[in-house]
Amino acid sequence: MNHLDHNLHLTIPFPNDRYSEVAVKVLRPDPILRPEDFQVEYKSKGNLLEIDFKSVDDRVLRVGVSSVIDSVKTIVETIDELDYM
């Protein structure tokens, strides 16, 4: 069993609780390809999106984090531009 001892915690503030919940729901369904090397957990706490990464080494961590940040960017842009409510 690998030790997932390379960790990172991200806190991303959204304008309101609804948006942070949307972000969690959008991100959560995608499976992690190698769960023995890399794990992610998404939580919404009020208006905050909290993401916990755990990984076997720095390289895997960096790749995983940057891919999640790319997705978060898409979500933020979509909320900014396409929420008509």
Partner: peptide, 15 residues
Amino acid sequence: LHSVAIAARTISLLW
């Protein structure tokens, strides 16, 4: 595929 699916899920939830 994934990048477009993320946008699709977001607008589905927003709307």
